[in-house]
Design a protein around this nucleic acid. Structure first.
Lengths: 224, 224
DNA sequence: GCAAAAGTGTTGCCGGTACACCCATGC
DNA sequence: GCATGGGTGTACCGGCAACACTTTTGC
């Protein structure tokens, strides 16, 4: 381990893994794929991922693997952390750059399940293969934190949404309730969402006004 | 840049880079080493770093390179982000896990400069080799942010310090002044620092009481 | 005794939180 | 007309920011 080791220019095996979240049925859920790699992992589940090719960035690898393996495209992702534990993959040394991804519920519902992949509520996503428990825990923690000081929630919702839907998204991810009046006041006066004038009708209740996030992309704010 | 380069660098090589900070002479400074790699980088400077060996984690690689190259040991480091731009190293594909490191001023002053390495105020650390400008910018931003909601500042100070030294450290990193009474009140009532009873004498002014950070390690708080 | 930095409390204001009722629609 | 969720305003309280003078030492 000390400096008298010859610089090892051998191939590094570099991978990406993605904790892709959606709020489904009022639960924070993560997309898991089947893992069956005898002798170490039999009938387990894990996060989607794969190797980084020699001529692509980690971000491009994320997009490629989500497209090819999960038939998922146009998702928001951001880098989480890199996991370099020596034995994280028992087959050999694999260093993984982990990403946090988000999807609106409707888009998540349209993800094909033919490949055995499933949306699983995070509290049930335990005993994953490799070190994916650890990656998932880091991703959850990061998501919860970012919700409070960024507009990242926009990527968990469709373009237009009601304020109740927005609030429920926050409540589901953060695991606690917010006061309806304070929540609306805050988001509107900070100016990160604004009303469209359109109404959502068809429910057996008073119609709700549809809103949109202001601007594009994720910006930094202070919400709570 | 593509696969037709020489074999040793044909696929991704994994490296670490460290933005190692210290507050010296009331300036936030970063440790830079000389970079002389014809034909791309002549007489430039860059962050210390090096390759990750096959049997060590990224954290171990950081410790090893700092020890071997900069003769620096026992520093606090935390992972920053991974940089995987395809052309970030013109010699070939190198993916780098970047780290943020911190040192107390006295320890930084004791770092040997024989190897050409220098502590450089961050505002003068421009035009670095590779993508190190980008890494350094990310590190500065992260350091400033973490100062406000963690006790990370403990690693920029010696074990015992005066409240004025602590405040100056915050002011230097954040680039703005704080009110003396409010600053002390906050840090003391939150309980992250506590007085030792010892005094620092020898200056031509009233002696100041020495303080310590409570507990060990970095914890999460809200300061401002 | 003078220069230099240490130490110490109070007040006003703003923002966060707690809280309850009427409204519009589908059936 | 009734069930369901949508939408709205106020009052209190606590935390943050602004602010100036006295104290202790070295020289």
């Amino acid at each position: 381990m000390s400096g008298n080791q010859k610089p090892a220019l051998r191939f590094a095996v570099l991978a990406i893994d993605v904790a892709l979240f959606a709020v489904l049925d009022r639960r924070l859920s993560v997309l898991l794929i089947p893992v069956d790699r005898p002798p170490h992992f039999l009938n387990r589940r894990g996060l989607p991922g794969g190797l980084i090719a020699p001529e692509e960035t980690a971000e491009q690898a994320v997009a490629r693997h989500l497209r090819d393996k999960a038939e998922v495209s146009r998702v928001y992702v951001e880098q989480l952390a890199t996991f370099s534990g020596i034995d994280r993959d028992p087959r050999g040394r694999v260093v993984s750059v982990a990403y946090l991804g988000l999807m609106p519920a409707e888009q998540a519902a349209a993800v094909p399940l033919a490949l055995g992949q499933r949306w699983v509520p995070v509290e049930q996503a335990k005993h994953l293969a490799y070190d994916h428990d650890e990656i998932l825990a880091a991703a959850c923690e990061r998501l919860r934190a970012r919700l409070g000081y960024s507009t990242i929630a926009r990527h968990l919702l469709p373009r237009e949404f009601t304020l109740t839907e927005l609030q429920q998204t926050y409540e589901t991810v953060c695991g606690r309730a917010f006061d309806k009046r304070n929540f609306r006041k805050k988001l509107l006066e900070v100016g990160i969402v604004h009303p469209t004038g359109k109404m959502r009708t068809g429910q057996p209740s008073r119609p709700a006004e549809l809103h949109r996030f202001a601007g594009t992309g994720v910006s930094v704010i202070v919400l709570f």
